[in-house]
C-alpha cells in the first residue's frame, strides 16, 4: 500500500518537526523516543550548518554563540523546500528583521540580503564580459539602442547602511576596520561574479542608476539618461567606461 508508506513518511516528518506522536517504529517506546531525537538533531544541525555557510558575515558580526541561537530558531521555524540544502535560508533577512533580540543591530537584514546575493552569485552561470571593441564598432544610433545584459549573478542592493563596506571588512584578507560616511545614506552595493570570484563594490548613485536601468533592459541611451537623472553632475560616459572596464555586462548577444 503506497498510501500506508506516504502516511508513515508524513508522520515521521511531522515528528522531526516536533510532533509528539511518532510513526510506527519497532522497540520499546522510551528507547525509540530517545533515538528519534538523533533525527531531530541531525536535521536541525544540517540546517544550521547551511545558514552558517551562506551567512558568514552575519556570523562574524554577531559572534558564534549568538549566531547559533539565531540559526537554531530559524531552523526550527523555517522548513526546507528543496533537496539541496544550499537553497536553504533565503528568508533569513526577513527573519532577522523580525527577531527581537537582533534589533540592536538594525543593519543585519540588509547584510543578510547582500550575503544571499553573494551566495547565489557563487554558483551563477559562467560568462564572459562584454567586449568594449563591440561597442566601438557600432554607429551612434546602434550604440544608443544597445541593450546590455548584466552578467549572471550580478545584483544591486540599496541600503540605509554601508553594507558593501561591512561585507568587505569581514573578508578573510581584509584590512582591519573600514571608513564610511555614516551621514550619507542611501548606500548602493553591487555583487558580481568574475570567472571564479565574487566581488562586492560600493557604487555611487550614478553607477547604481546605470546598473538598474541596464538590468531592467533599457537601451543604452535611456540608461545614460537615468545616470544623469540620478546624479546631475555625473559624467555618464565615465560611469559607463568604469562599468565596462569592471565587466558588469555579458558578452552574450544583446538586443
Amino acid at each position: 500500500m503506497r498510501d500506508a508508506l506516504a502516511h508513515w513518511q508524513r508522520a515521521f516528518g511531522a515528528a522531526i518537526d516536533g510532533a509528539a506522536t511518532l510513526p510506527a517504529l519497532r522497540g520499546d517506546a522510551a528507547t525509540v523516543a530517545r533515538r528519534f531525537g538523533v533525527y531531530r538533531n541531525n536535521v536541525r544541525l544540517a540546517r544550521m550548518a547551511a545558514l552558517r555557510n551562506a551567512y558568514p558575515v552575519i556570523a562574524a558580526l554577531v559572534g558564534d554563540a549568538f549566531f547559533d541561537g539565531l540559526a537554531r530558531r530559524f531552523a526550527s521555524t523555517y522548513a526546507s523546500t528543496a533537496g539541496d540544502l544550499n537553497a536553504y535560508g533565503a528568508a533569513f533577512d526577513a527573519f532577522l528583521a523580525a527577531f527581537e533580540p537582533a534589533q540592536a543591530l538594525p543593519y543585519l537584514p540588509d547584510v543578510a540580503r547582500l550575503e544571499r546575493a553573494v551566495h547565489v552569485a557563487w554558483s551563477a552561470a559562467d560568462s564572459a564580459p562584454f567586449d568594449v571593441a563591440r561597442l566601438a564598432s557600432l554607429d551612434a544610433a546602434a550604440q544608443a539602442a544597445l541593450r546590455f545584459t548584466v552578467r549572471p549573478g550580478a545584483h544591486a542592493l540599496v541600503s540605509r547602511w554601508p553594507i558593501a563596506a561591512i561585507w568587505n571588512a569581514h573578508q578573510p584578507d581584509a584590512p582591519h576596520g573600514f571608513d564610511f560616511d555614516a551621514a550619507s545614506p542611501p548606500y548602493f552595493a553591487l555583487v558580481r561574479r568574475d570567472a571564479t570570484r565574487v566581488r562586492v563594490d560600493t557604487l555611487d548613485a550614478a553607477a547604481h542608476a546605470l546598473f538598474v536601468a541596464s538590468a531592467g533592459g533599457a537601451p543604452l541611451a535611456d540608461a545614460l539618461d537615468a545616470v544623469v537623472a540620478a546624479a546631475p553632475h555625473a559624467d555618464a560616459g565615465v560611469v559607463l567606461g568604469t562599468a565596462l572596464r569592471d565587466g558588469w555586462f555579458d558578452d552574450a548577444p544583446a538586443g
Partner: peptide
C-alpha cells in the same frame, strides 16, 4: 514528501 524536505 510533498513540499517538505528534511535533507537527511
Amino acid at each position: 514528501i510533498g513540499d517538505a524536505h528534511w535533507n537527511d
